[in-house]
Nucleic acid binder design. Sequence first.
DNA 1: TGCATTTACTAAACAGTGTTTATTATATTT
DNA 2: AAATATAATAAACACTGTTTAGTAAATGCA
Lengths: 204, 204
Amino acid sequence: MAIKERKEREKQEMRNLIIESATRMFLKQGYDKTSIRNIADDIEYSPATIYLYFKDKDEIFYVIHENAFDILDQHLRQHDGIADPVERLDAIGRTYIRFGLENPDYYDLMFIMRAPMEQIKNEEKWKAGECAFGYLLTTLSECLEQKKIRPADLHVTAIQVWSYVHGLVSLYVRERMCILMLPDDATREVLYSSFALFISNLKT
Amino acid sequence: MAIKERKEREKQEMRNLIIESATRMFLKQGYDKTSIRNIADDIEYSPATIYLYFKDKDEIFYVIHENAFDILDQHLRQHDGIADPVERLDAIGRTYIRFGLENPDYYDLMFIMRAPMEQIKNEEKWKAGECAFGYLLTTLSECLEQKKIRPADLHVTAIQVWSYVHGLVSLYVRERMCILMLPDDATREVLYSSFALFISNLKT
DNA sequence: TGCATTTACTAAACAGTGTTTATTATATTT
DNA sequence: AAATATAATAAACACTGTTTAGTAAATGCA
């Protein structure tokens, strides 16, 4: 009965087709303009067909959300080779910020929008988030062990670092950095300078 | 011609009626469920009437956004009496965090949602934001003058502080703090502890 | 092979949304 | 009292996510 396997494969291909189309549209026109009807038009199926492969719109965006975490993860793990944990922390932070600035829509979906988190409530855990946060925890615990940053509770420190870079990126992405009344490239410079200052304040 | 004045007054009263209804609904059921039709139902007018007093839905929420800034401002200015600027900074930060945790919908509108910022582009400046940010700048420049915090560029430091508290609150409000896998009250405690640590790292 | 059954798909509808237009009723001015 | 200006609305437009009922094709079994 190889038919069942082929059917399963075809089902997965259709899911991929939908996700690919949705991702293209999302990155081009944003969440709101990526409607089920637009996706259906794009892949040349009826809107109702999409509901045979995904429970609802949120489920589609949950998959995109997970894919985005894979991409961020690849970026962050690039710094695995840096021996000094504080230097690594600095590199991770700058890469995180750069990822946010260069992929504002992905960043939105990963860390700002409510939709993907609704999905997580009904499932089990925020696996993708835990993976990235775990990497931060590992790096920070090395920093603390080697007494290279000011001593404090590991989780409190992690929240401090994450909140900080998230604050920078999310204020920028959601257009609150206009408060500086600077041109865009100068604003970005302030973000990186501010992060550098933060890291230097963290050091022992 | 006192009629014109009365008409002007009536127009303003109608605007207030709409804003009051919209605010009530927004705080009770959130942005999405506050539809023009729901507001119209609530004030017992037709949906089209609302468009005689407001250009669109965003304009209504822009007014609510401005009102929210007034409320935050009142909270923050409570600490005007604190002589030591670092102590004042600490109090301001904690009040900002508390405001965000206790008024998540207002916080959303003020610092996360895109809608109100669209309005600002078409107008002049982000007056409400500048007011609050100005207060932070004043406090920080005092801290720097008195050499009570580590020396650095004023604006870079301000962005550092704001990004940090915003990061804490926005990750909480948009449900990313679930990563800590702690009950709600413990999570809030981590936020405050993390801020305390941040302030102590900022001090000279 | 022929028939029954399962699977895949879709047209149409439902219940919403923000917004605009054409029309009516009311209030003001002349 | 008639003409004009203002205020309010019913209905429509163009969307949205989602569900239902019905059709056509592929598969399982005799």
